[in-house]
């Protein structure tokens, strides 16, 4: 049968459910092994952050679409967390292979990395299920609320510049993403590059300033040992 937009959407949802229905809500034994290999074990930081951001997500979701839909918000977040752990494991495996290192202490204790990775996973789930809701305010007034990107950045208080850093690695680490989802993530990238990363509170300006200062300094002699 011909692919209609509804059929495509249903297929994408079924595919995501198939992958995540059997996935863990908590770090797998492989992830735990990576955490145990770290100089500073990141487990508590990671699980506390998942809990805290979950509360923020569910509050904001219910506020946006109505308290009656809070359970749906909870289900969406749960799927996002499963995808987050799945992609994290895949990323670490490929980094281990590429760099031949087993200790990812700095990366796994970086709050901006985790916040951005989790935001990316939740964005994929939210986009899969659709992010536009019609809310009835009174019996005859309806309004549309939009939970699509960059909504998740505001909810998690993530800088677009940090979110941008994880997109490409996320796509590489999750080969089951549909073509439509990759296009969506690419559109998020473009919006960040063209607009959001240049807003007043972006860390990009400090980074550019630091880069300029480094370039302006006379060449430093090489350190004797590294």
């Amino acid at each position: 049968p011909p692919q209609t937009p509804v059929r495509t959407a249903m297929n994408t949802i079924q595919q995501l459910q198939m992958i995540l229905n059997t996935a863990d809500d908590k770090p797998s034994s492989t992830l735990e092994a990576y955490f145990n290999n770290c100089t500073v074990n990141p487990t508590n930081g990671i699980t506390n952050r998942v809990e805290y951001l979950g509360q923020k997500f569910q509050e904001n979701f219910a506020q946006a679409v109505g308290e009656g839909w809070a359970e749906i918000g909870s289900q969406r977040y749960k799927l996002g967390v499963r995808l987050y752990y799945r992609v994290m494991e895949s990323m670490l495996k490929s980094e281990e292979e590429r760099l031949s290192v087993h200790n990812f202490s700095k990366l796994l204790n970086d709050a901006t990395f985790h916040g951005s990775l989790l935001a990316c996973a939740v964005e994929v789930v939210m986009t899969t299920y659709g992010t536009t809701w019609n809310i009835t305010l009174t019996s005859d007034i309806q309004t549309e609320t939009d939970l699509s990107f960059p909504w998740i950045l505001r909810v998690f208080d993530i800088k677009a510049y940090e979110f941008y850093k994880v997109i490409e690695s996320f796509i590489k680490a999750e080969p089951t993403l549909s073509r439509e989802m990759i296009k969506h993530m690419e559109r998020c990238e473009h919006r960040i590059m063209e607009c959001i990363a240049w807003q007043m509170d972006s860390p990009l300006f400090d980074i550019l300033k630091q880069q300029k200062e480094q370039e302006d300094q006379p060449d430093q002699p090489e350190p004797t040992s590294t």
Binding site: M91, E95, L107, K165, V166, E168, I171, R179, I182
Partner: peptide
């Protein structure tokens, strides 16, 4: 991935982007 433009250099990954190399 056919239409996606990859920005990372070859041999570069998430570790470099978060200054972990």
């Amino acid at each position: 991935f056919q239409d996606y433009h990859f920005g990372l250099d070859e041999g570069e990954g998430i570790s470099e982007l978060f200054d972990c190399d």
